[in-house]
């Protein structure tokens, strides 16, 4: 969103303003309702949910569902809770985000400041890779991971996310560096600075904002991924999303809705926190790929 954007000049009267605020508030409730449902029901005993009290506040407040979801709930065959899977997700996300962001920065730098014939085509090829349905790569990727000895491991997942994250990270840095004055780079070249020196001394110091955007985007996407996790992980390397789905959809025993809700919040918390702390950058990342100008 452009900083100097102006409000509309359209004028509205008293009654219509009242209507506008009412509608806006109703939609606030609509968007917040599922979050409210998750939070209150993760803090009440199971029988309160079963009695048709999903929308009421807990009569007896309890943290037991949280404890259960974190460390004792049955996931698949083992009663480990979500904790090990949370760790898997972290182990997977951090390297995948770091490497794809660094590669994206270098690619964006080359594609804007060291242009050569055919660079737009290369960028187009990378960009199209962001949008393909990943169903198209599942079969060969499963085989390739097997050949590389990474099948069913966290490093395997890191590799997959890194490969399919390059397109977006390149997009961000390319569009950002395209605005960066090429004259500065030229001047440095004339002074004898080389490829990496220019990158390190001139480009990197001003890359803060776009790095944040890129890291947030990659973090959110990779943390929230389900398809790759479900396809390529073993029981002991599953990410959080896959474990949560196993917890919720397991058909054995009593359905502990309160534990499911607690688990869902745990899976949502990291990305939600990032959104609350750095929402501005999150929105910029969302828009960068989709809005002209």
């Amino acid at each position: 969103m452009a900083g100097g954007a102006s409000d509309t000049v359209v004028r509205t009267g008293r009654v219509s303003r009242f209507v506008i605020y009412t509608v806006l508030i109703v939609f606030c409730i609509y968007y917040l309702l599922p979050l409210y449902v998750m939070v209150v029901n993760s803090l009440k005993p199971l029988d309160e949910i079963r009695g048709g009290g999903m929308l009421s506040l807990p009569q007896t407040w309890t943290l037991a569902p949280w404890g259960s979801a974190w460390s004792t709930a049955q996931i698949g065959i083992e009663a480990t809770g979500l904790r090990p899977y949370f760790m898997n997700s972290i182990l997977m996300v951090v390297p995948a985000v770091a490497i794809s962001t660094i590669l994206g920065a270098l690619n964006g730098y080359v594609l804007t400041k060291w242009r050569f014939r055919g660079d737009t085509i290369i960028f187009g090829l990378m960009l199209f890779g962001c949008f393909i349905p990943f169903q198209m790569v599942l079969i060969p990727m499963a085989r390739m991971l097997g050949l590389m000895g990474l099948a069913g491991t966290v490093p395997g997942l890191i590799f997959v996310h890194l490969v399919y994250g390059i397109g977006f990270s390149t997009l961000y840095f390319r569009n950002y560096y395209a605005q960066f004055p090429t004259e500065l780079v030229r001047a440095a070249m004339i002074d004898g600075a080389g490829f990496f020196k220019i990158f390190q001394r001139i480009m990197l110091p001003s890359s803060g904002p776009i790095a944040v955007v890129c890291i947030i985007w990659q973090f959110t996407n990779i943390w929230n991924d389900f398809l790759f996790g479900a396809s390529f992980a073993d029981f002991d390397s599953q990410p959080m999303t896959v474990a949560l789905n196993n917890l919720v959809s397991s058909s054995t025993g009593v359905k502990e809705y309160n534990v499911h809700f607690a688990g869902a919040i745990m899976a949502a918390l990291p990305t939600l926190l990032v959104y609350i702390v750095a929402g501005r950058f999150f929105v910029r990342g969302l828009m960068a790929g989709s809005v002209k100008g």
Binding site: Y31, A264, A268, L272, F282
Partner: peptide, 15 residues
């Protein structure tokens, strides 16, 4: 209005 976009579809689906 925008926070659901930060959630995983698995979380949305569960809720």
């Amino acid at each position: 209005y925008l926070y659901p976009m930060a959630l995983s579809f698995i979380v949305t689906g569960t809720a």
